[in-house]
Design a protein around this nucleic acid. Structure first.
Length: 1162
RNA sequence: GCCCAGAUGGCGGAAUUGGUAGACGCGCUGGACUCAAAAUCCAGUGGUAGCAAUACUGUGCAGGUUCGAUUCCUGUUCUGGGCACCA
């Protein structure tokens, strides 16, 4: 009886299905265990051998835990929203819903082949309205919550409103504002209109609307992912891509930064994974420091001979300090007592809404203007009625002149205009801005003249090393920094404009990866706030606008990047750390004693940090600041195939929908063309977008047309598996309390930061709101390595004809060896090839060029399907049929009668023809072989290229196992010592040797499975079966426990043999009849108890010790395990080999490590 | 560039806590069975020298710590993954 894996696997898969053996209950007396895979995105390419790696590992573990007596939740689902389906729809006209459905069906078929123990009754799909209803619902909870920094948890926004009504926002200042922190009293809050109030609340919500830069491709009319942008142009079509500011939704994950960091200590993730996450969060502490900037290196405006004013006063650099103070007070006063019109306009232009930073009540040249838009050199004034008076008109004129004298334009509106014609006013401002931005050409005055009055611009930097402030030799600001224009002097304008243009052409990725040092001097200088030393201000792409303040103080003796920059641009370097700096590279030490550092001299750097910060805070020129590299998570996409937002817009204000209105179903669209102004395709669906206006509201009530990003559904799906059919809740508290944390989560490292951080944040949020009872989603995380493809190449010869054009008519391919020759020498001389060429073209070409080598060869590697290559040898017939016979007339130049392909390890991908489909392997070898082979490849965590070759060995092992039970001719050969009903098959009891094999296998399998070392687990099985075969052991008492051990790895064969064993040895006819009925009614191996190993069978009394002389192993001695040092020394010194190596010398000492080794040292 | 990981025979890998480097499997070589093939079984297999016993050498590279290093430390090279709109 042979091992017929096809029938066996089919039979058991069907039996498992019919008997619902993988259905999991939420109600069980057993302890729970939750084993989860990262659910797949169902791509059109289907499953390749890389996908199941983690699934098999988790399946083995889940089955193992079940045998160990746990109630195991092991679900699977699909991350079904995403860009590829949308892209596919655009290119092939197939609706994402349809292609996704097809892909899922295909995935499911492929998964089913492998025999997983998933409870499919709990399947989730993120694109199913029943699922995303709750994604939207959780979003609404985020939208309606804020983060209370006092008790460090999310709370309903209603609590915040209550607090505002009581005491304004004193308790809860606006989070994450870098610059203008706005404060208001309870009374002010109550007086704000709806728009104003909502606008303020938006700045607190955990899901909020803001503005962010995206990759904008005008030609495609759409936003592109970083992946889709290559060298500044779109991947599709090669169109230019620019940064564009768009309204975006965000999740305020930064509020959770500290808790996400702390939580890492409570979970069982690999150290490297924790490190990656904490680096991503990037917490650092230091200080923000303001540096005053001027356009000349001369520290004082008046120039010659003036005494240095004390540091504390120099902060306010105006011609007349008293005037400045007065202006500043006025400005504060004005901001509080703004007119209605001012406020209306402010609400429309604040917060970068126009793409330009706006300052209110800003002091310029001795005046306070209502609004200043410095980057476009615009001042806006709103005039009350008294401006009609003749006298006032004159003043206004003088004011306008004054503004234009410093290069500013002035737009003037009346109160009335602003109030009744807001839109027109906004349009006017917009068009001015657009003109100004476009016209940033040659003759726009670049900078505001200064020195005679007005606020000197301040450059705010963030530094973790304020102790090095006297070592600052230059400042660097990001190219996008708002002060770039202001601080650029006319002489440097040209260079700066050119540099900015250069930076704009570069993608973020390129900028980060750049080794080359680039930058440009602005011409202006920042003043060291302590000693007034002028420091040149540079612009460079190595400073990123998104981190800190987008500006740094550079200390070349302490920071390597700053050092290289200084060297490259010949900026003199100040040494503040004495001998610690060698002039050849920076030294980032904190332990040096400071020199050349004014009041810090003689202090150890790490102690100086606090001293400096204190001083900065006293002088009000800086503050202590904790910074995070992590930014808020952009949560909207200008795409179709995602969850719609449960948000509507009324009069420019976002409102949440009621829970009863969920789900907001993604409407069907036939054409997925982008909407206007960078909006997603949904914007085109007028009848869906526009909602009837309620009475009294403005003209348009619109739906939000963005959709949620891919990680929305995956941020909480693991909770839905616990209670997948609940129509009233996303997951009942009872279910989430029962299942709790995911005990084991398996997935790729590529999700190390994104998905894992987002889902950890959502979990913390749901915990804060009391909806679930645990704060960390995953107790233990295992990262599976990536299975790479091993690509194969054929080498095509291209002949260039005499006119210089390559000739593609004849496909001729040379074997690998010739390609190597070609690479080495740049040409190939090969008689066969010459003959071939001459026979095709030679005579003609010779005539033309009079050159025997008229047709030159070049050779290009071409990817060939790995499935038609055996090892490295190409199946030439299959190749001719490949790709519909594209190469049917191919000719080959062979080596040793074979065509040998080249190879390279690359990502597995359809386009590289290096994918291997698990289905083919399952058909050829069976699911059990496939499962065990994937595990046998190596450690789950490690990346490795796929190679199908070794699979035979694992298949052989299973057949060898089978032969312990059945002989191909004789049929069953297993025996049992216990009496059986028929009295047949009576055999011997197991021997000690056999029991030892079994028990050491039980021990090893248990350990290896628990620690996820499945590759060594498989080899343990092989060793066990080899040893049992050697002993000719066919005893049920040994084999049955072995099958239970094997069941998680190879469930089909284990189930089959187990069933066979448990039908006592029957006559052949009875057996046939039983097998016809299937094994229905027989107890499944799935629920068998995992065997326990017994120490008494494993006991050893002696060990063969390696004996080394000076660390080199020379011989082996078998000693009793309980031998003492003295006994060992005696025996060792008597040994002939040891004596020989000692050459008569007395050993200095003998090292004896029990159960390990012996080392004789001379 | 920054962060993380990896590198061991012809190949995948093993060596769990610093203690016999190469378990197990593939491949390869030789043999048995067979008319033949498949399947199966037996023996060998890191390199160099040697009939052999054996000796030397060997875990990316260069150092260091140790009686002893694939394992720990310093530096370095190469490969893979991530770097915020691929999932």
């Amino acid at each position: 009886m042979e091992y017929n894996f096809r029938d066996i696997e089919k039979k058991w898969q069907q039996w498992w299905k019919e008997n619902d053996v993988y259905k999991v209950s939420n109600d069980s007396p057993k302890p729970k265990h939750y084993v989860l895979d990262m659910f797949p995105y169902p791509s059109g390419a289907g499953l390749h051998v890389g996908h199941p790696l983690g699934y098999i590992a988790s399946d083995i573990y889940a089955r193992f835990k079940r045998l160990k007596g746990f109630n195991v939740l092991h679900p699977m689902g699909y991350d079904a929203f995403g860009l590829p389906a949308e892209q596919y729809a655009i290119e092939h006209g197939i609706h994402p819903a349809i292609s996704t459905e097809n892909n899922i069906n295909n995935f499911r078929k492929q998964l089913d082949n492998i025999g997983f123990s998933f409870d499919w009754d709990r399947e989730v799909r993120t694109s199913d309205p029943k699922f995303y209803k709750w994604t939207q619902w959780i979003f609404l909870q985020l939208f309606n919550s804020f983060y209370n920094r006092w008790n460090k948890k999310a709370e309903p926004i209603a609590n915040l409103i209550a607090s505002f009504e009581n005491e304004g926002n004193k308790q809860h200042p606006i989070p994450n504002t870098q610059h203008d922190t706005e404060s208001f009293s309870a009374k002010e809050w109550k007086n704000f209109d709806e728009a104003r109030q909502q606008d303020i609340l938006m700045q607190y919500r955990l899901a909020y609307c803001g503005f962010g830069e995206v990759n904008w491709c005008e030609a495609l009319g759409t936003v592109l992912a970083n992946d889709e942008v290559i060298n500044g142009v779109s991947e599709r079509g090669g169109h230019p891509v620019v940064k564009k500011k768009l309204r975006q939704w965000y999740l305020r994950i930064t509020e959770y930064a500290d808790r996400l960091l702390e939580g890492l200590q409570k979970v069982d993730f690999s150290e490297s994974m924790k490190e990656m996450q904490s680096n991503w969060i990037g917490k650092s502490s230091g200080a923000e420091i303001d540096f005053e900037v001027r356009l000349t290196p001369n520290p004082s405006p008046g120039g010659e001979g003036e005494e240095e004013p004390p540091a504390s006063k120099r902060l306010f650099k105006t011609a007349d300090i008293s005037l400045w103070q007065t202006l500043k007070n006025y400005s504060r006063e004005n901001r509080k007592n703004k007119t209605e019109a001012e406020d209306v306009l402010w609400q429309r232009i604040r917060n970068n809404q126009l793409g330009v930073k706006v300052r209110r009540q800003h002091a310029i040249e001795g005046y306070i203007v209502d609004f200043a838009l410095l980057p476009v050199k615009l001042v806006i004034e709103i005039d009350g009625e008294y401006h009609n008076a003749e006298e006032q008109k004159l003043y206004d004129e003088i004011r306008t002149k004054c503004m234009s004298s410093v290069g500013l334009s002035l737009l003037r509106f009346t109160n009335d205009e602003v109030l009744s014609n807001t839109e027109q006013v906004i349009e006017k401002i917009k068009s001015f801005i657009n003109k100004a931005l476009e016209g940033r050409g040659a003759d726009t005055p670049l900078s505001v003249r200064r020195g005679v009055g007005g606020e000197a611009p301040k450059l705010r930097v963030y530094t973790t090393r304020p102790d090095t402030i006297f070592g600052v030799d230059f400042m660097v600001i990001a190219p996008e920094h708002e002060l770039v224009e202001l601080v650029t002097t006319p002489e440097h304008k040209q260079a700066v404009v050119e540099y900015i243009a250069y930076v704009k052409s570069r993608s973020e990725r390129e900028r980060m990866a750049e080794k080359k040092i680039t930058g440009v001097f602005t011409g202006s200088y920042a003043l060291n706030p302590f000693n007034g030393r002028p420091i040149p201000v540079w612009i460079s792409e190595y400073v990123l606008i998104g981190y800190g303040t987008g500006a740094i103080m550079a200390v070349p003796c302490g920071d390597q990047r700053d050092f290289l920059f200084a060297q490259h641009f010949n900026i003199p370097i100040t040494n503040i750390i004495g001998d610690h700096y060698n002039g050849e590279e920076a030294n980032p030490t904190k332990d040096a004693i400071l020199m050349n550092s004014d009041f810090l001299n003689g202090m150890v750097m790490k102690d100086a940090i606090d001293v400096v910060i204190k001083r900065l805070e006293e002088l009000e020129i800086g503050v202590r600041k904790v910074n995070y590299k992590m930014r808020d998570a952009a949560f909207s996409r200008q795409r179709y195939w995602g969850e719609p937002f449960p948000i509507i817009w009324k009069d420019g204000i976002a409102y949440s929908l009621e829970e009863s209105e969920l789900p907001v179903v993604l409407p069907h669209m036939d054409e997925l063309t982008p909407g206007p102004d960078g909006e997603g395709p949904l914007a085109n669906l007028k009848e869906w977008v526009n909602l009837p206006s309620p009475p009294g509201a403005g003209p348009g009530v619109r739906r939000e047309v963005n959709t949620m990003p891919g990680y929305a559904g995956s941020s909480w799906y693991f909770l839905r598996y616990m209670d997948p059919h609940n129509d009233n809740e996303f997951c009942s508290r009872k279910a989430s309390d029962y299942w709790g944390q995911v005990d084991l989560y398996i997935g790729g490292t590529e999700h190390a930061v994104g998905h894992l951080l987002y889902s950890r944040m959502w979990t913390k949020f749901l915990y804060d709101t009391g909806l679930i009872g645990h704060e960390e989603p995953y107790k233990r995380l295992v990262n599976q390595g990536m299975i790479q493809g091993s690509s194969r190449f054929v080498y095509r010869v291209i002949v260039t004809n005499p006119s210089g054009t390559p000739e593609f008519k004849y496909p001729i391919f040379v074997s690998s060896k010739y390609y190597q020759e070609y690479l080495e020498h740049g040409f190939l001389s090969n008689e066969t090839l010459d003959d071939w060429r001459n026979s095709r073209f030679g005579l003609e070409w010779k005539k033309l060029s009079n050159d025997p080598y008229a047709g030159k060869f070049s050779i290009v590697p071409v990817h060939v399907d790995v499935n038609i290559v055996d090892g490295y040898e190409l199946d030439r017939e299959a190749f001719k049929k490949w790709r519909g016979g594209e190469y049917s007339n191919a000719e080959f130049i062979l080596e040793d009668g074979k065509y040998i392909c080249g190879s390279e390890v690359e990502k597995m991908s359809k386009s590289k023809f290096n994918t291997v489909n698990p289905d083919d392997l399952v058909i050829k070898y069976g699911a059990d072989t496939f499962r065990m082979y994937e595990m046998f490849l190596g450690p789950v965590e490690m990346s490795k290229p796929w190679d199908t070759k070794g699979i035979e060995g694992v298949h052989r092992f299973l057949r060898k196992l089978w032969r312990l039970f059945f002989d191909d001719v004789k049929g069953p050969i297993w025996t049992t010592a216990s009496p059986s009903p028929t009295g047949e098959g009576r055999g011997e009891a197991p021997t000690d040797a056999e029991l030892k094999i079994l028990h050491k296998t039980i021990k090893k399998i248990e350990e290896d499975t628990e620690r996820f070392s499945f590759n060594t687990g498989v080899s343990t099985f092989m060793i066990c079966v080899n040893e049992l075969t050697d002993l000719k052991c066919h005893k049920k008492e040994i084999l049955e426990p072995l099958l239970i051990l094997l069941a998680p790895y190879a469930p089909h064969i284990a189930e089959e043999l187990y069933a066979q064993l448990r039908q006592a040895p029957l006559s052949a006819s009875l057996r046939a009849e039983r097998s016809k009925r299937g094994a229905r009614g027989e107890a499944s191996i799935l629920n068998a108890p995992f065997p326990k190993w017994n120490e008494k069978y494993l006991k050893e009394t002696s060990k063969a010790y390696p004996v080394a002389i000076n660390g080199k192993t020379r011989t082996e001695l078998t000693l009793a395990l309980d031998a003492t040092q003295q006994q060992v020394e005696e025996i060792v010194l008597k040994d002939a080999v040891v004596t020989k190596w000692l050459e008569g010398k007395q050993p200095k000492k003998i090292i004896y490590v029990k159960n390990k080794m012996i080392n004789v040292v001379t």
